[in-house]
Each structure stands twice: as structure tokens, then as C-alpha cells.
Design a protein around this nucleic acid. Sequence first.
DNA 1: GGTAGACCTGGACGC
DNA 2: GCGTCCAGGTCTACC
Length: 350
Amino acid sequence: MARRVPPRPTRLTLDTPEDYDLPRDLCSYGYFLLEPNDWDPASGTFSTVLALEHGAAAITITQKCPGKPLCARADRTLTRSEMAQARTMLSRMLRLDESAESIAAFHAVDNRWRASGRGRLMRSPTLFEDMAKTITSCNVQWPGTIDMNAALCARVGSPATGGRFAFPAPEQLARKRAPWLRSRCRVGYRDQRLIDLARLFLKGHIDEAWLEDPATPDEEVRRFLLDLPGIGPYAAHNIMQLLGRYGFLPLDTESVRHGTSVLGFTGDDKRVLKQVTAHYERFGLGPGGQAFRSYWLDLWAYYESSRGPAHTWEKRTTGRTFTAAQLRPDRKDSTLKDSPSSGGTTRASR
DNA sequence: GGTAGACCTGGACGC
DNA sequence: GCGTCCAGGTCTACC
């Protein structure tokens, strides 16, 4: 009887920009805490599940030291075309396509981040996942977003080994009925909006190449996004930054908290938001601006000041502690560095 | 153009 | 432990 040879895991080497630092550049945006992503602070290993041509594949990524290539290992043998697909997706997700020169251009506008080298913000392997994740972060606290993404992967996504699942592809989500999605994935009224978005992708009504093309004017992209189901001003501006268009601020309740507790602004919410916008204008608002990165890195620095460096956050403990209530400056235990098991919530770590 | 209320879920809070 | 209140962004109706 012929012995069955176990499939050989495919290994990939991913070249990085000379300043790339995996813990810093991956743990830069809350999506690193959302399924199917998983960062292990102890080993400095990132893993995710990609939906590839012949099924889902779990990918593990490490980097020996900053500036060195990334070592990626799949849990199965990938075909040649799947390898190319995985490279494209990982490059998008980790912003490997953003050069050191591009980051330097940001630092020229806001030199506060030059020493730490911050500027690359993690995103999803596909635009569809970025948009869907943005919708799951609207009108809900951060643990709700975490739970919705976990359920979407487990109930709708494709399985990989080890009981892990990829994020649903548009065709998988488009097949679902709203009541099913609502009851199984706890997405609430977002059910139909997620399905409609998936169907638009499936029908080719969302031209990814046009949206990603730097030659496409920011204002046209913004107007297009605002017409999509479930996408309002906050979501549109957030998707803009995920597309690498940094001149727009996704203003929400976190912006109000930041404006009052960190920047010291006063007045009602509307007035505070106006002052926040004016404050970040110096870093460039509108087409070609950099204001978002300055704004976001300020928020991130605030979270790290109470939770410790993001690359030390445990997904199941610290990663769930971002709630408006827990981030209130008047809260006595808002510093949770010593109590990583505390529960809680905000869209803060988005 | 601006405003109010509904949408849905889960955390916070009071008893 | 239970019930109630409230936070959260988008959408729609209305002024």
C-alpha cells in the first residue's frame, strides 16, 4: 500500500521596505485584533487565513528583525497562482507596497513620528474585507465589532486547518439571507447592508482598480463611497484612509473624547469636532493631505499610554478593553497595564 | 440644509 | 439576577 505523503507547506519570502518593522507596522490599527487575524505577542508571530483560489489557507508570518524580509509559511501546498495571490494580499494587508520614501513624506509633514518611524497602518487583504469590517465597526462598541467579525468568519467564511476560517468572500456573503445573517452573526440591522455591499462587488459595480488608482481624484472616490449601502461620512472617510488617501478624518465619538480629554477642547460635540478638524488641518486636510495619520497616531499613542505598546496586547484580553466607558479619563482603572484580563470595550482600537 | 427618531446589540447601572 | 437605560453611525422622513 502506498504511503500517503502529507502536503508540504509552502514557504514564501516577502521583501519589505528598508524601514519595515512587523510588530510596529502590523499592530498599528485595530483590525490586527479582528478575525481572521491573530498576533501572538509572546513569539512576535502574525497569522491569518486567506481565501485563495483553491480554498482557504492559514498563513504564519515572522520577521527576524526590522528591515529584513518576512518569512511566510502556509499550512498547505499552494499552487503557483495561489502563491502570487497570497503575495498580493499580504502586500496589501501589511502595506509592503508603501515605500520608505512615502513614509518619509509623511514625516516631513508631521515630524513627531520620525524617531519611532510610525506611519504605515495595517489593513485587510482585500478592499471588500476593509469595507465590511468598517460597517461592522459602525454604531457598536469594539467588542461587538470583534464578535461580528468572528461570527462572519466562522459561519460564512471558508475553513482552513486548525479550526480557523477566512473572512467571507463577496460571493459567500451575497448568497445569505438577511435574517440568517442577523441571527447567526449578530450583525443586527447591518445584515442587508453587508449583503447589498457583497452583491455590488459580485456584480462588478465596485471598480477596485479605479478606487485604488492614485490618479483617481480623492473627491470622486469619496462621493462614490458615500453612495454605497451602510457607508456614511464616518465610514467613507475611514475607507479613504484604508485606500491610502489620508486627507479625511473619520469623525466619531472617539474624536470627541480625544478632543476634550487630550486636546482640551470644550463645548458641545459639534463644536469639539470643529476644533479637532481645525487642529489637524496643519497636517493637510482634503486631497493629498496627511491629517488622518497624524490624528490616528495621536489616538493610538493615547491607547498605548494606558494599555502598553500595541504589540503586547493580547487579542482575547487587552484587545477587548477598548470601550468608551473604559477609556474615560475620569475612570480610576483606565490604566489596565496590570490587569490584562479586564473585560470591556470602544471602537477605539479599530 | 438641518434635525429627530428608528435601527440592534450588549455593556453599564440600579434595584 | 433581573430590568432598564444608553452608546454607537447610518438612514429616512420631515421641517
